[in-house]
Amino acid sequence: MQWWTIFQKELLENWRSLKWVWVPIVFILLAIMDPITSYYTPVLLEQFGDLPEGAEINIPTPTPEQAFMSSISQYNLMGLLLILIMTMGLISGERKSGVTELILVKPVRYTNYITAKWASTLLLVLTSSFLGLLASWYYINILFGDLPFSHAMTGFLFHSVWYVLVITISVFLNTLFRVPGLVGFLSVTSVIVLSSINGIFKSQFEWLPPQIHLYIQTFLNSGTLPTDMWITTVLTILLSAILLMLSVFIFKKKELAS
């Protein structure tokens, strides 16, 4: 099958460019840094803080749920930035350097080309984020107390839905523009705009994609999945699907024109 061949080629390329080495490591470090520092900050302050005699430090120890949420927030900030910078040349860079032409002189279907690239990136990012949250869960159990494994994994799954959208936005912009820097800038901007819109309208429309983080938090604290979470998830997946189809459509048009 053609799709599978291109997908494997992409995986091999990600391996050769060492992405399968450094992306998982960086995601693990991102996920565990926050729980570890928030656990040791009070200890360090007490020992080396040079505080005046009798000063009381009152930093409440986060609950396991809060600590896990801090890993997810880290993903939502640094992880997001990393993904967008990493994927900004995914297609645009290849078009600029002429690799796309080399591939597309063969009878490769545009749909296969785009979706295989999308899927290989998704696999890399989701595997890395899974390993990171697994490590975070492990540390939280040692440092802060019991956090059910199923809760951590549910958090991972719903957070992945958001990452799917983020990667799709990047792929979409990659088909629109040829300059990787511009793609990176616009993808970061669009995610910020999306989050701001959500911030403004969340009381009127509570199912915008960034809202999913609030629901993950609610879930971790209560243990039940709110209905709104499912609606948000379905909407996010739908939006990603539309963007992916648009990407293929735009890419086809642009490649045929050039």
Binding site: W22, I28, M33, I36
Partner: peptide, 25 residues
């Protein structure tokens, strides 16, 4: 003795791998 090695060593190993891979490359 105060440093929680069990917690810190995995972090150090990961950072070391990252550093080594980058330098070898």
């Amino acid at each position: 003795a105060m440093i929680p090695w069990k917690i810190i060593i995995p972090v150090m190993i990961l950072e070391l791998i990252l550093l080594t891979v980058a330098i070898v490359d």
